[in-house]
C-alpha cells in the first residue's frame, strides 16, 4: 500500500473575480519509505499540494477541491475534519523553510517539543517529554540536548533550530514527512549538513518523504523519484537518475538547461516556449502514472 496517492487533484480559489484554478488535475504517489521530490518554479502549486495532504486547505471556505487524496489507503475527503486533524502531527508531519521563524519565539524548545509529543501521547508529562526530547535531539547530533531544550529559538543558531525541527518532525514516528523547501533560509553548508542529517533520520525511521524543493542539486542527492510540476500540472516524473540524464518533457529540459551544472540554488522562471509545456505527463518506463500506480 502506498503511503500517499493523489489522483486527478484539482484546486481552485474562489475570489472576487471568479475562481482561480491553481491545480489542474495532478496525480502522484509515494511508496512506503520512498523519498519523492516535487520540483517546480514559484507559484506552480507545490505548497498548496502539501497543505491539501495535511488537510489544512479543506476547511478553507474559498477552496474548490476535486480528485482523490489517499493517505495509507484512506480517502481524506471521506474523513471528518476531526479525523483529518488526528493525522496531523502524528502520522504526518512537516518541516519548513525557515526553522527559526517556524518556532514560537516566546516559549522554550522544551515546551514546543512537549506540545508535539502530546499529539501522539496526550498523557505525557513534562518530565517524560524531556526525556524523550533529549533522546531525539541527541539523534540529530545536538551535543547538549538538555541545554538546547531550555533555550528559546532566538538563542540557537539556524542550523540548531533546523535539527530541532527535524527531531520534532520525526518524534512521533510519522509515516509521511513533508518537507517544504527545508532550510532554504539557512546558508548553503548548513543546509547541506542538515539535509544529510534528515536523510539519515528518515532512512532510519523508514519514513516516506514528500520533498518540495527549488534546488535541483539537492533533489538529485535526496530523492528516489522526481515529479516536475508546471503551472499546476505534472509535466514529467521518473526515477531521479533517469530524469536527470534523459529529460523528456520540454519544460524539464528547459529547466535543466537553465541551471548549469545543476548545482545552482534556484529554479528560474521559464517563459512558456510552446504549447508542448502543457502536454500531458511524460513518464519514464516502469513508473506508470496515472495508470499503473500501485
Amino acid at each position: 500500500m502506498n503511503t500517499l496517492r493523489i489522483r486527478d487533484l484539482t484546486l481552485g480559489f474562489k475570489g472576487w473575480s471568479g475562481t482561480v484554478e491553481v491545480l489542474h488535475g495532478i496525480s502522484l504517489h509515494i511508496g512506503r519509505g520512498e523519498r519523492v521530490a516535487l520540483v517546480g518554479e514559484s507559484g506552480s502549486g507545490k505548497s498548496v499540494t502539501a497543505r491539501i495532504v495535511l488537510g489544512l486547505l479543506q476547511s478553507l471556505r474559498s477552496t474548490r477541491l476535486s480528485g482523490l487524496v489517499e493517505f495509507e489507503g484512506r480517502d481524506l475527503s471521506k474523513l471528518s475534519e476531526r479525523e483529518r486533524h488526528a493525522l496531523r502531527g502524528t502520522k504526518m508531519s512537516m518541516i519548513f523553510q525557515d526553522p527559526t521563524s517556524s518556532l514560537n519565539p516566546v516559549y522554550p524548545i522544551l515546551t514546543q517539543f512537549h506540545e508535539v509529543l502530546r499529539r501522539a501521547d496526550p498523557a505525557i508529562n513534562l518530565t517524560g517529554a524531556r526525556a524523550r526530547a533529549e533522546k531525539a535531539l541527541a539523534d540529530v547530533s545536538i551535543t547538549d540536548p538538555s541545554r538546547a531544550l531550555d533555550s528559546y529559538p532566538f538563542q540557537l543558531s539556524g542550523g540548531m533550530n533546523q535539527r530541532v525541527m527535524i527531531a520534532m518532525a520525526l518524534a512521533n514516528d510519522p509515516s509521511l514527512l513533508i518537507a517544504d523547501e527545508p532550510g532554504t533560509a539557512l546558508d548553503v553548508t548548513v543546509q547541506a549538513q542538515t539535509l544529510r542529517l534528515m536523510r539519515e533520520q528518515v532512512e532510519r525511521h523508514g519514513t516516506s518523504v514528500l520533498f518540495i524543493s527549488h534546488n535541483l542539486g539537492v533533489v538529485r542527492e535526496f530523492a528516489d523519484r522526481v515529479y516536475v510540476i508546471y503551472k499546476g500540472r505534472i509535466a514529467e516524473q521518473g526515477p531521479t537518475a533517469a530524469l536527470f540524464e534523459d529529460p523528456r518533457h520540454p519544460y524539464t529540459r528547459a529547466l535543466l538547461d537553465a541551471v548549469p551544472r545543476i548545482t545552482g540554488d534556484g529554479i528560474p522562471e521559464i517563459e512558456d516556449a510552446s504549447d508542448a509545456y502543457f502536454a500531458p505527463t511524460e513518464v519514464h518506463e516502469g513508473y506508470g502514472e496515472p495508470e499503473g500506480a500501485a
Binding site: R51, L54, L56, H85, A86, L87, R88, G89, T90, S93, M94, F96, Q97, D98, S101, S102, L103, N104, P105, V106, Y107, E115, V116, R119, M168, I178
Partner: peptide, 24 residues
C-alpha cells in the same frame, strides 16, 4: 510561519489562538 507550523502539527485551535497568536 510558527502558526502554520502549529496548525500542521494539529495543535488545538484554542492553544494556537492563545499561545501562538495572542501571546507573541
Amino acid at each position: 510561519p510558527y502558526i502554520e507550523m502549529a496548525k500542521s502539527y494539529g495543535f488545538p485551535e484554542k492553544r494556537i489562538a492563545w499561545r501562538y497568536a495572542f501571546k507573541p
